[in-house]
Design a protein around this nucleic acid. Sequence first.
DNA 1: AGATCAATTGAACGCTGTCGAATTATTTTA
DNA 2: TAAAATAATTCGACAGCGTTCAATTGATCT
Lengths: 199, 199
Amino acid sequence: MGRRSDHSREQLEALILEEGHRHMAESGFAKFSSREVAKRIGYSVGTLYNVFGSYDRLIVAINTRTFDLWAAFLEQRLASRPQDRIAALVEGYFRFASENTNIWMAIYDHRLPPGVPMPDDYARQRAGLTEVVVREVAAVLPPDAKDVAPRLARSLVATVHGHCTFALNGSFALLGETAPLEMATARVKESLRAAGAKL
Amino acid sequence: MGRRSDHSREQLEALILEEGHRHMAESGFAKFSSREVAKRIGYSVGTLYNVFGSYDRLIVAINTRTFDLWAAFLEQRLASRPQDRIAALVEGYFRFASENTNIWMAIYDHRLPPGVPMPDDYARQRAGLTEVVVREVAAVLPPDAKDVAPRLARSLVATVHGHCTFALNGSFALLGETAPLEMATARVKESLRAAGAKL
DNA sequence: AGATCAATTGAACGCTGTCGAATTATTTTA
DNA sequence: TAAAATAATTCGACAGCGTTCAATTGATCT
């Protein structure tokens, strides 16, 4: 069993987060358990509560970590100089989701109790993902339309998100759709062209 | 406690479904409990298992019922002769979701274990919702493009779904977006115009 | 009326999140 | 250095969950 001097509070927090993230990746949101995380790191459940305060806050921390990985994943794919950066973004969204189904779905499986707001640090961290998209959308819009980039980007993320969700949860398969990625990319490009982008 | 002669098997199934649906509407997926449903109808948990076989199948039944209500809701709104039927569909999607948040979200909160397919009756029933959209999309496309209606309709449902999800789970609010419905409608109309529809 | 049969229950199992009292280890004080 | 104060950690309890199955109950048939 873990003893006080084994880890500092920061180490403990990092340890829980890392093992929690791993457990979420392996088991998914429905089977995730804080007791199991505690068991794996050799501490008792109570210690997780000391560090994170509640189950909800632990999940929020784990899911925010996923946002970080996701944004880094997109940036890395963009850095490899794809010929079509917009298509690369849509593909990156899909690929991250399908290669990390459990942790990706956990983001949307979890809901804070009504009235409890997302802690500010976490909110800011999560916004990083959208900022990448805003930047790329702005880059492709004509100069006189750049001010619509933030709203349009958010909307296009929602568009891709809907397609990705249906692809991964089986809705598309049930309806006979076999090429969700192509569909999502087509919708995004239509909207960008409608806003004046040349693609 | 319920006794054998109180209800036939069909009545029992209907009773569980009705009370289960009500409980889901009141409590949401995370707090839903088959034991609670049993308590409310005055039977023991075992009886629910006799009738539905498993927790998963009960949830699938409840969620399929929601699809029925949802499709009926859309048809009813279309029947009131809106001047813009496409906008009415998008609005109907949003309105049903926000007026029935818990049962709507439960559809996407629940996942069958990997490898377990959706029973065929349920799959067919659920497809009814998409058929409404396919019909309306086809009606607005030019004759030579009608064959793309099924795929385009599925894709547009995904688009609207993404916007609706972000609206209800707070993602849009976090990013400063205040008019998700308008955004969704704009995206749908852009795609329909790109396919040759006159709107 | 007695035997058969199926529906229903009730208790058990192992799991969960949550909480607070008891315990342990560290730090401070005398 | 020994004792007291403080903080971290554990432990046990609680109420709830899904699931299973032997025992019981009510209805049906002979």
